[in-house]
Design a binder for these strands. Structure first.
Lengths: 224, 224
DNA sequence: CGAGCAATTGAGACAAGTCAAAGCTGGTGG
DNA sequence: CCACCAGCTTTGACTTGTCTCAATTGCTCG
């Protein structure tokens, strides 16, 4: 039950009705930096990431940015109650995704309640992650935020897969900062501190080796 | 379409199948301070608030608390993917709520896909609110956070009802602080500043009169 | 090899936190 | 009926974690 396909929207119907899904889906590639959802625009499409990583974010008028999440393979974007998107999305690295017409998807949902069920499950998952992120943003220190981020990254691919001690961060320091509610400089300094404390190694800006996962998890949980 | 019943879980089935829902629901009253969901405990029940206000929160081991939301009449609690709750809930004032067995609700959902649809809509709404709160916690100043809080409170009861210029805050300063990622003292000082700037009046600690909603909204949106 | 961007490091500033002391207020019992 | 207590809120003085501004280093790719 673990792995990318288990968390995919398509999963619930792919098995039974692959054909009808394929008929309304368009596969698209987006290069790094390419924006494919703009906050406030008409929410006509659903998206399902199949490769790469996208960042989801909201902006304030003066340019302050909060990244609300990173969406990897299997992630699903575009749930919206109102008829406009509540956030923007941009490719971090090379991203491949399926695009569905929202109108047509509605028809599919009526025919296949199982897919509705799956969507609810996904939304619930997102909600739990969002609450965890609120705890991080509202109450954790810079050190705890970065440790949390690295620990979560080490568990990508589901709670069942073994944790990776080598983590790849496709995003920039600026993205990490905007995700953790910090500045670039604080992210950089905190990375350096974690390295000085022998908790991680930094072979390059986009690679982190977690040398002491147990202590990183302690810090992430708020036990300095 | 606006009002409490429109955002209630029950709504989708009440009209058609009120009987079966009532059969599995238990109505309960909780006094202020009473905890009725504990993070980490077995998620056996769903809850639907029908009166009063509850606070939902997560704790760190050292006692730091993040309130992830306030749930008023019509709100729905207990969505969980895993079999344990991801947050705790406690009554702010006198709360009345319906409790459903999760196991039995599952049966209802299978029979009434419309209810599943309604739940997805609710979860999506929550998700949008959660993203907005992440922006607040990660990127807004104390003044912007409090202004945002007051503006949202003035719109309780849905986007369709006229905004109230008199807002009642059933929760304490400590609750507001833990919701906005601030301290009690900062909340208090910021309230005082808003009053000094003639944006609000404070007849009592639990009542606020919004004297200049337009400017409060400007501040809330990040335009200091 | 150098231009351009990302990341790191440093020094000083400031928003919000901490610690401490009054004020207020609502409920209770003498 | 009112004084007192306990808890909440406000205000004040000081500290600090993180931000801002600025300079330097390192990497990637024409």
């Amino acid at each position: 039950m673990c792995g990318v396909r288990a968390t995919s929207v398509c999963n619930a119907i792919e098995d039974a009705h692959l054909g009808r899904l394929a008929a309304v889906a368009v596969t698209i590639e987006a290069d790094p930096g390419k924006a494919f959802i703009e906050e406030g625009e008409s929410a006509d499409n659903f998206f399902n990431i199949t490769a790469g990583t996208a960042k989801l974010f909201k902006l304030l008028p003066d340019g302050r940015r909060q990244i609300t999440g990173f969406a990897g393979a299997g992630h699903f974007l575009g749930l919206a109650v109102s008829d406009t998107y509540a956030f923007s999305a941009e490719a971090v690295d090379k991203v491949r995704y399926c695009r569905f017409s929202r109108r047509r998807l509605r028809g599919l949902l009526d025919d296949f309640p199982a897919m509705e069920k799956r969507l609810l499950e996904l939304a619930t998952n997102e909600l739990v992650a969002a609450q965890e992120q609120m705890l991080l943003l509202g109450r954790k220190t810079a050190l705890e935020r970065l440790a949390s981020f690295l620990v979560v990254r080490s568990r990508l691919g589901g709670p069942c897969t073994p944790r990776r001690t080598r983590v790849t961060l496709p995003m920039t320091r600026s993205d990490i900062a905007d995700y953790l509610g910090l500045t670039i400089e604080t992210v950089s300094r905190t990375m350096t501190k974690l390295r000085a404390d022998k908790l991680i190694e930094l072979p390059g800006p986009h690679d982190v080796v977690l040398r002491d996962l147990a202590n990183l998890e302690r810090i992430a949980g708020g036990l300095m």
